[in-house]
Structure formats: structure tokens, C-alpha cells
């Protein structure tokens, strides 16, 4: 494990609080919450040394972390841009024009789904239903939902990102 991977003392306090939610010996339950914390703290994705570090904190085998991290779609297994645009493409969003929104982002940023822009600012992802069907079409950026999307609204959001003004958490 790389020596320079470590949570800040503030984050470590949060980590211990999370582990305390479970009975003694059941600390593995903290794995998914801790991976969220780690992904946020270490640049938006989970490199192997980071997963090993989480395994060490929880006294579990690294493989137990890998198998979980690769199962859940919110964990990124490779580097992503600062702003990950996650556009819902499932039925109800499709009925309300998500295809057009995806096309608009592809053309505006000149990237395909799954790619990151050359400046490292944006990654475009399509995702499955995020529970915003009544407010479709929608996308998630960071911790927040952006709903009732139109091409104009997407253009505004992208501009906000470029200015560093879009809240992520």
C-alpha cells in the first residue's frame, strides 16, 4: 500500500462514527459508506491502493473491497472528469426526450458516452433510472439532480461547470 494514501484527521473522525453504527465485529457493513467517503476524498475514483487502504481500516481482505466496488455503479474504477454528467436514459426519461439531451451533450463537449473531455473537466455517462421520472429528462452531477432538462438548460449547466460555479455536494 502506498504510504501517502490516508484520510485527513477530520475524515477519520467521520469514518469512526460510521463504523460505530454497527455492532462489534460487523464493521464490514461500513464498507459501502467508506468507499463513498474515499471516492470523494481521493479524486473521484477508486484506485487499487485506495481500496487496499479501506480494507486495512476495516480489517478485511482487499478482495472483499474489490468485489463490492466493482458491483455498484456509483463507484468509478477509472479516472473521471471533475464533473461527471450522468444522464438517465431509462423508459420514462426516454419518453420525455433524454435521447436529445444526450446528443446535445455529445455535440457540445465533443465526447462520446463513457469518455472524458480532453481538458479533464467532463465525463459523460448514461445511467439507469434515478427516481426522477416525473421531472424528466434529468441528469445527476455530483450529489445533485438537475431536472426538467432542455438543451438550453444543459448549456447553462455546462457553462457553470466551466466557471467552477456548479455545486457538487
Amino acid at each position: 500500500m502506498s504510504e501517502n494514501i490516508a484520510f485527513t484527521p477530520e475524515t477519520m473522525t467521520q469514518v469512526h462514527k460510521i463504523i460505530a453504527r454497527y455492532p462489534e465485529g460487523k464493521q464490514k457493513s461500513a464498507l459501502i459508506p467508506l468507499l463513498h467517503v474515499a471516492q470523494k476524498e481521493f479524486g473521484g475514483w477508486l484506485a487499487v491502493p485506495i481500496m487496499d487502504y479501506v480494507a486495512e481500516i476495516l480489517s478485511i481482505q482487499p478482495i472483499e473491497v474489490y468485489e463490492v466496488a466493482t458491483f455498484y455503479t456509483m463507484f468509478n474504477m477509472k479516472p473521471v472528469g471533475k464533473y461527471v454528467l450522468e444522464v438517465c436514459q431509462t423508459g420514462p426519461c426516454m419518453l420525455n426526450g433524454s435521447d436529445g439531451i444526450i446528443k446535445h451533450i455529445r455535440e457540445t463537449l465533443n465526447i462520446e458516452v463513457g469518455q472524458t473531455s480532453a481538458d479533464g473537466l467532463f465525463t459523460l455517462k448514461t445511467v439507469e433510472c434515478l427516481g426522477a421520472c416525473g421531472y424528466a429528462p434529468m441528469m445527476q452531477v455530483g450529489d445533485f439532480y438537475h431536472e426538467h432538462l432542455t438543451n438550453e438548460k444543459v448549456t447553462e449547466i455546462i457553462a457553470l461547470c466551466r466557471e467552477g460555479q456548479l455545486a457538487l455536494d
Binding site: 459501502i32 468507499l35 463513498h36 455498484y72 456509483m74
Partner: peptide, 10 residues
């Protein structure tokens, strides 16, 4: 009562 966040899995 504690909150537990999932990570994207229907």
C-alpha cells in the same frame, strides 16, 4: 436509527 447509503444497484 442510522442511515445507510447504497451505491447504485436496483
Amino acid at each position: 436509527i442510522y442511515m445507510q447509503r447504497g451505491a447504485g444497484a436496483y
